[in-house]
């Protein structure tokens, strides 16, 4: 293999890793949009809280003398998911439910308010500096000719890929096979009608917020371990990128969020690879504009049918 091929493989690995995490966060946006047609702007903050919980739990358990890393990670994962889900549920309860049926812009503003609130709440309780965690899972594989270019693929990157695919697969099964999933799909088709048919739509909407938050917590844990730092402001950029991924893939579509995330991640990596990295965001967002010009509902989104 030539140097360029190896280099492209390396950037593909990097891009798929970033893309996987975008996809995990994007699910939360896409599910809420699919069901109530609104964007949950506090979602990035839930992801940030997931990372903080992970850090606090890992540091706490290690401080208590626990040595088994898998056990620590399982406990951290469980707590991160539970706590972030609680926040997700509360966001829905506080910022969305009281405003249901009002003008669509109003819950949007209340969600932005929620996002600012959560960010500042974490600043006040945890401080605004970067909090760092030493690498927990290090090492990986390298291949390629060292004299040309050595491709590295770390265990952590593999874990991120696997976790993303498992979470996505599980969610797709849940939506397409389970009773609750069927209720979710019914809500997304026609909220009012579903309600008339005797399904508690409030419960289903709360459930989508909780699922979205749980996946954001998984992303929070994975990215927290991968990058090893967190500050109260990481939710904003992560949320923005994930939202872009959701729109790119077709907001409202779960496979679309996955595809959108991967495309965005790989585009970013490839742009930094062959152009100055300043152009990374320019290229990704131009791509978004182009796709929306030709497919206004995103790559896998269903075109909206005008209801008369």
């Amino acid at each position: 293999m030539t140097e360029t091929t190896l280099y492209v493989i390396q950037q593909l690995i990097n891009g798929l890793t970033i893309g996987s995490t975008y996809a995990l966060i994007a699910i939360g946006y896409t599910m809420v949009y699919g069901i109530i047609g609104m964007i949950n702007f506090a979602h990035g903050e839930i992801y940030m809280i997931g990372t903080y919980v992970t850090f606090i739990v890992i540091a706490g358990l290690m401080g208590m003398g626990m040595v088994s890393l898998p056990l620590i990670l399982v406990v951290a994962l469980l707590l991160a998911v539970i706590i972030a889900s609680t926040y997700g549920w509360t966001v829905e309860r506080v910022a969305y439910r009281p405003l249901r049926g009002s003008n669509r812009l109003i819950p949007l503003i209340s969600a932005i308010g929620m996002s600012i609130f959560l960010q500042n709440y974490v600043v006040l309780s945890q401080g605004s500096r970067d909090v760092a965690l030493p690498p927990q899972i290090s090492g990986g594989w390298t291949f390629g000719d060292p004299s040309l270019f050595e491709v590295s693929f770390s265990y952590m990157q593999l874990i991120i890929w696997v976790a993303t695919f498992v979470a996505m697969g599980g969610l797709t099964l849940f939506i397409s096979r389970s009773r609750m999933g069927r209720a979710c799909r019914a809500c997304s088709e026609d909220l009012g009608m579903t309600n008339l048919l005797g399904i508690d739509t409030n419960k289903i909407i709360a459930l989508t917020f909780v699922i979205g938050a749980a996946l954001a917590a998984v992303a929070g844990l994975l990215l927290g371990l991968y990058y090893g730092v967190v500050n109260p402001f990481v939710g904003f950029i992560a949320g923005l990128k994930a939202f872009t991924a959701a729109v790119l893939g077709g907001i409202g579509s779960i496979p679309g969020a996955m595809l959108g995330g991967l495309i965005l991640g790989v585009t970013e990596a490839m742009t930094s690879a062959f152009f100055p990295s300043e152009y990374k965001d320019v290229v990704s967002f131009s791509l978004l504009v182009l796709i929306l010009l030709f497919r206004p509902s995103g790559l896998l989104g269903k075109p909206e049918v005008e209801k008369v």
Partner: peptide
């Protein structure tokens, strides 16, 4: 080259440096 303040992932940049 420039990076974006607040970014967390520099893997693409590092591969390029390498």
């Amino acid at each position: 080259e420039g990076v974006t303040a607040g970014d967390k992932d520099f893997s693409a940049l590092i591969a390029k440096l390498k």
